[in-house]
Design a protein around this nucleic acid. Sequence first.
DNA 1: ATGTGTGCAAAGTGTTTGCATATCA
DNA 2: TGATATGCAAACACTTTGCACACAT
Lengths: 146, 146
Amino acid sequence: MIEEYKWFWEAFDQYAQKNHLKNTSQRKLIIDCFLDSKAHLEADELYNLVKTRGINVGLATIYRTLNTLKAAGLVQLRLLDDNRNVYELVEPGFHHDHIICTQCGRIDEFSSSEIKKYQLKVAGNLGYFVKYHKLEIYGVCPACHK
Amino acid sequence: MIEEYKWFWEAFDQYAQKNHLKNTSQRKLIIDCFLDSKAHLEADELYNLVKTRGINVGLATIYRTLNTLKAAGLVQLRLLDDNRNVYELVEPGFHHDHIICTQCGRIDEFSSSEIKKYQLKVAGNLGYFVKYHKLEIYGVCPACHK
DNA sequence: ATGTGTGCAAAGTGTTTGCATATCA
DNA sequence: TGATATGCAAACACTTTGCACACAT
């Protein structure tokens, strides 16, 4: 287990225990691949990644595992403008937003307390009680606008 | 023609002429329904809306019309967290963001120059050249948190 | 022994496409 | 007349589900 994802495994083990999940080699492998990838993956990409490890896992199992992680609150599905549906790791309490390159598809993360502040203000003006937000900036990354 | 959408029809007519589109009653009807609805619609909702006018239009034609409008830059497809794919009118030069009620699905619009400003700052720090952004705030609307 | 997980294939969704026919210019 | 549009059904891509079998506890 990589130290970096200690928080993940602790949270997942807890969830697994509470929900009577069993340990299977497939799920372990899928999650390992997902974590290793630094994780902004489509289900299909994860499927192929797992296949490179030589073990045959059904695509359905990939989806089931991702849905389990989503239910555990450790993974989030993100619908991007370019029609990619990417899954990403969610570290509880560490919110971040994304900036996506329209040319190469690269995804970077950031977070801004100022933006958050003004979101609350705007929402308050409209009488909304804010639960969460999703901000995506689309642009051209440094590598692509040379 | 409703005065409010003069800008729309001018833009669309220009696009239509340039691209040799023909005037058909179906397309006219679909667009009328779309404009009348104040427009945050799924393809399917628009389909049903058109049907209430008594004329039978194929669902495929709805999609083709929406795609045409998208190509003309007058309509935008928005993938929401709740898996709705809503189409909305885009008035060139008038950018706005959305706040969506997680309970009733209501969508309100807003725009904030402050948020825009900080987005540019954040993107600049990462070396990105910003093209556009998409901000969605999810929360509970006034009517739902009584 | 029981319940959970798996692979596969089939079913589901939402959207697009092929084709014959109809319509506009 | 010739290009564009339409309706329908079939094709599509992505995701979920049913089932029989396997495995973890």
